[in-house]
C-alpha cells in the first residue's frame, strides 16, 4: 500500500536527477566503449564472419553483390586457389623463407644479445645501433638492398656498374653474381631476400632476448663458474634454458611473421614479385591474396586468406607443442 502510494506521487526534481544518474551509471561504461565497439564491429568482427561467408560463394565479387547479383554456394574458390600453379610457388617460397630466416635470425640475435650482456662500455650505443632496422620502412630499405645488390645494365646487357656487393665479392677474389637483375637465378634472389629479412628481424629478437637475459639470476652463473664450467657449457646449460620462454616467443612470432612475408619482397623486387622477366617467381601467400584482390576476385582472395590462416594456426600449434616440451619455466 505504502509503496504504490509513493510511486504515484510525482518525483521531485532531486529524485529524478538521482534516478537518471543511476541509469546513466549503469550504461556509461558502454557509452565509453561505443566508438571502439562500432569500429571493431565493422572492421574486425564483420570481416571474420564475412570472409568465411564469401570464401564459400563461388566467384564472389563485392561490386557485383552491391549491384544485386547472387552467388551459388560451394568450394570453387578453394579449388581455384589450390589448383593455381602459383599457389605451390607461393607456398614453397613462403615456407623456404620462413624455415631459413627464423632459425638464422634467432641464433644470430641470441649471440648478439649474449655478447651485449657480457660487455660494459659502449653497450648502450651498440644496443641502439642494433635496434635501428626496426624503425625503418621495409619498402624503403628494401630499395637500398636492391641498390646494393643491383648491377646497372646498359641496354640490359653488359653491366656498367657492378654494385657494391659484387665489388666487395671481387675484392675478396670471388666472382660477381647476378643477384637481382633480369636472368638472375632463384637461389641468388633467395639469398638476397634471406639477408634482408634477417637484417630486418634481428632488432625485435635482440630486444626480447636481451630483456630476458637481464632477468636471469646472476647466482646461476657464479655457481657454474665455481664449478669450472666452460663458457660454451654455461651458454647451452644455463643461458639457453633460462631464456627458453623468450626464445619460444621470438620463434613463434617469427614463424607467424614469416608466413606473412610480403613487403620485403616488394621493397626489393617491386610488386611484380620477381626479377625482370620472371614476374611472380618470388610471390608469397600474402602476395597471392593481394593479387586476387586486385583482380576483383574477392571470393578467391578470401579462400586464400583462410588457407593462410589455417596454415599459420597449424604451425603455431606445432610450435606451442614443441615449446611445451622444451621450454623450462
Amino acid at each position: 500500500m505504502e509503496k504504490t502510494k509513493q510511486a504515484k506521487t510525482p518525483l521531485t526534481k532531486m529524485e529524478k536527477k538521482i534516478r537518471a544518474k543511476a541509469i546513466f551509471n549503469r550504461w556509461k561504461a558502454w557509452l565509453y566503449l561505443l566508438p571502439a565497439l562500432v569500429i571493431l564491429g565493422l572492421f574486425t568482427v564483420w570481416p571474420i564472419i564475412n570472409t568465411l561467408r564469401i570464401a564459400f560463394l563461388n566467384d564472389y565479387n563485392g561490386l557485383m553483390e552491391v549491384g544485386g547479383a547472387t552467388f551459388s554456394v560451394g568450394v570453387k574458390n578453394f579449388a581455384t586457389v589450390l589448383k593455381d600453379p602459383s599457389f605451390l610457388t607461393s607456398l614453397g617460397n613462403t615456407m623456404l623463407l620462413t624455415v631459413i630466416t627464423v632459425p638464422v635470425s634467432t641464433m644470430l640475435a641470441l649471440l648478439i644479445a649474449v655478447a651485449l650482456n657480457s660487455i660494459k662500455p659502449l653497450r648502450r650505443l651498440l644496443q641502439t645501433i642494433f635496434f635501428l632496422p626496426y624503425v625503418t620502412n621495409s619498402i624503403a630499405i628494401g630499395m637500398v638492398f636492391m641498390a646494393m645488390f643491383n648491377m646497372v645494365l646498359l641496354k640490359g646487357h653488359e653491366p656498367i656498374s657492378l654494385g657494391i656487393i659484387n665489388t666487395i665479392i671481387e675484392a675478396f677474389g670471388g666472382t660477381r653474381i647476378n643477384w637481382v637483375n633480369a636472368g638472375s637465378s632463384k637461389v641468388a634472389n633467395m639469398v638476397v631476400l634471406i639477408f634482408y629479412i634477417v637484417w630486418n628481424a634481428l632488432p625485435f629478437k635482440i630486444l626480447v632476448l636481451l630483456g630476458g637475459l637481464q632477468g636471469v639470476n646472476k647466482q646461476y652463473y657464479d655457481a657454474a663458474r665455481v664449478d669450472g664450467a666452460s663458457r660454451w657449457r654455461i651458454f647451452w646449460r644455463i643461458t639457453v634454458p633460462m631464456l627458453s620462454p623468450m626464445i619460444a616467443y621470438v620463434v613463434i612470432t617469427g614463424f607467424i611473421g614469416g608466413f606473412k612475408e610480403y613487403t620485403s619482397i616488394v621493397g626489393i623486387f617491386g610488386d611484380r614479385m620477381g626479377p625482370v622477366g620472371a614476374d611472380g617467381s618470388l610471390n608469397t601467400m600474402v602476395g597471392m591474396i593481394y593479387d586476387s584482390l586486385n583482380d576483383g576476385s574477392q571470393g578467391i582472395a578470401s579462400a586464400a586468406a583462410l588457407i593462410l590462416f589455417v596454415i599459420i594456426f597449424i604451425v603455431t600449434m606445432i610450435n606451442l607443442y614443441v615449446s611445451k616440451k622444451k621450454v623450462h619455466y
Binding site: 566503449l33 570481416p47 563485392g62 553483390e65 552491391v66 606473412k260 591474396i289 590462416f309 599459420i312
Partner: peptide, 27 residues
Amino acid sequence: LFAALLATMMIPGELFTVTNYITVVNW
C-alpha cells in the same frame, strides 16, 4: 568483453583486409 577483444588479436590482419576492402570501396 575484454577476453573477446584479446582473442581478435590472434587473427592475422590479412583475413580482415579482403572484407574491409569490400566494405570500404564497394559499400
